[in-house]
Nucleic acid binder design. Structure first.
Lengths: 334, 334
DNA sequence: GTTTGCAATGCAAACGTTTACAATCTAAGC
DNA sequence: GCTTAGATTGTAAACGTTTGCATTGCAAAC
């Protein structure tokens, strides 16, 4: 009962195992009756093709890797779902790799996936330092960046226009009349933050306003961080009456911090986030935010990976897709 | 540059490839100098062992499958993170399979994982109908159920005491003085619901109260469902002033529905959830709920899988772990 | 009744490892 | 210097498939 192989079937059907292989893969050149018998026996024996063996000879595993920094941030599961759906439809499986925002874990996984001979890698990189990734993988395994990507990459990516997003969020607050606007984000070797901050500054410039660097506070991507940073900010004598947080999780932390300081949102401090995670729209929260098409982003990333794989090792497919962010105004700012 | 193998190294080092294999795996019986040279060459050539080939001969892939119904429900990412952490520490990778609550997708994935020859499967089953799963996998691939499990299974599981959880939630509401308490959950071939509902009824019994079946409304596990069901409930002339929702997502939907009906929580309707997802504790939400040790649950499940694998095909490891639920009282009920 | 051509099948190599066993080398013991 | 044991290395089989090529069988065409 342990692991029935193609040979077992061959023996029972009195044919060579090459014929069994052909029959089971519905290849031409096998008599109808023979095929039927073989399939029947395969069924009886509860045969399951060994994808490992097949992978070895066909040099493809029908699987790819998905590297994300934080499965706990609802943004990523949403993207992952898109990827998973697309992959399944095409007959691919995905290795889930959660880096927990640790660079060495990212590297670890890249090596691992390479050893597993995945057909492609979809990665939401932690930072814009991707030399290692690019060096080890380039021209060997197709890579698609998702969510954010180093701008000088040779690889495909599907991202959102983070500068535009940062700009939209900030402009929204400016137009509401705020002239002192805080920025709360993750540490600055992340590309995401780099660009969203750029958008933030762009808006200031466009309206002829000065950026006050002391209003920019950086940490990481966790909710607690938003909470801590806003508290520190509020201690400042002249704290900003509006805050743009780099993602919704941070924004939620900010809101919590504001409330706990005895202030109100948006009365005392207006808050805008980024991502539009499901909870942002929850009536209790009603967070103004920049919406990213998360599911579609994942779906698209898979499409590109598949396209690259199909293309064979021939020419290098390179799609650079930049999606439009959308400002969604809710009650945390008005 | 495309795929350097053990043979390339052997040629360059002037040794047989068996020696290379031994050297790279740090096996005894290879001279220090030889080993050093081989490793050096391997480094230069940027050699990456082919896990597929290795898997074929060693008959293990160092990967296992994780089947969950909904990666979008924050409960599961939390569990997944525990599993991922445990797996990585032990050198295993996980195939993520999201069934989207569809039974045939679950079956599809089970077959797929079997073909991929994963070393084990951790599954949060959709329903208590697992004959197929058990039939196809039993005694071939180690299985560990997580979150909930069929009680008559031969396999290991790590779950929470759902009956107890349902009981705690309901008792809490009873003790607050409510005598008409609604139950909102998923369709009834889910084990989870079966047990939590059992706990609900148990509490009624214990306090000598009658269960009013019209106060029990079933749908699925999505937030919208909670929203829709509570709205239907509120239309009833004598709707319950307290609701136990089978999970936090449903509970959030319930709260939304209550508010939109112009009623307040907990003033008009008290709400208790289940899971304690991160957002339940958010100050805007403050959902009373039954806490599950999600991360630990995942961690434990991996431990068991690993233990089973280590054990070899010798005896059948079977651990049945039932964790204690904990009632966390917040502002959605008091 | 040959030939021709094509469909059906079998044979064997290949994919990149690991590993049992055989062969060789080295150095210690006599 | 010869034996011998132990360490080092090589040979080849195995893992379960796919697939190019050779072989066979059979029917149609001559």
């Amino acid at each position: 009962m342990i692991d029935v192989t193609i040979k077992d079937i061959a023996k029972k059907a009195n044919v060579s195992y090459a014929t069994v292989s052909r029959a089971l893969n519905n290849k031409k050149g096998v008599r109808g009756e023979t095929g039927r018998k073989i399939r029947e026996i395969a069924g009886e024996l509860n045969y399951r093709p060994n994808a490992i063996a097949r992978g070895l000879v066909k040099k493809q595993t029908h699987s790819f890797g998905l590297i994300i920094p934080d499965i706990t941030n609802p943004f990523f599961p949403e993207v992952a779902r898109g990827i998973e759906d697309g992959a399944r439809e095409a007959g691919y499986s995905i290795f889930l790799c959660n880096t927990n925002w640790e660079k060495n874990r990212e590297i670890h996984y890249i090596n691992l996936l390479a050893e597993k001979r995945v057909d492609g890698i979809i990665i939401a990189p932690i930072s814009n330092k991707v030399e290692f990734l690019e060096k080890t993988l380039n021209s060997k395994i197709p890579v698609v960046y998702v969510s954010n990507a180093p701008h000088d990459t040779q690889n495909s990516y599907v991202v959102i226009d983070n500068i535009r997003g940062g700009f939209l969020a900030t402009r929204h607050l400016i137009e509401l009349g705020y002239n002192s606007i805080g920025f709360i984000g993750a540490s600055n070797d992340s590309l995401t933050i780099d660009e969203r901050l750029k958008g933030y500054k762009l808006a200031f410039k466009k309206y002829g306003m000065e950026v006050d660097e002391s209003n920019i506070k950086l940490g990481d991507f966790k909710r607690e961080t938003g909470y801590n940073l806003i508290k520190r900010m509020i201690e400042m004598s002249n704290y900003p009456r509006a805050v743009f947080a780099e993602n919704d999780l941070l924004a939620l932390g900010v809101i919590q911090g504001v409330k706990e300081s005895g202030l109100s949102v948006p009365g005392d401090v207006a808050v805008v986030g980024f991502d539009d995670i499901p909870f942002a729209s929850f009536p209790e929260v009603q967070l103004t935010t920049i919406c990213q098409p998360k599911y579609e982003m994942g779906k698209k990333a898979v499409e590109i990976i598949l396209e690259t794989i199909e293309e064979g090792s021939g020419k290098w497919v390179c799609r650079k897709i930049i999606l439009e962010p959308e400002l969604i105004i809710r009650k945390s700012s008005h």
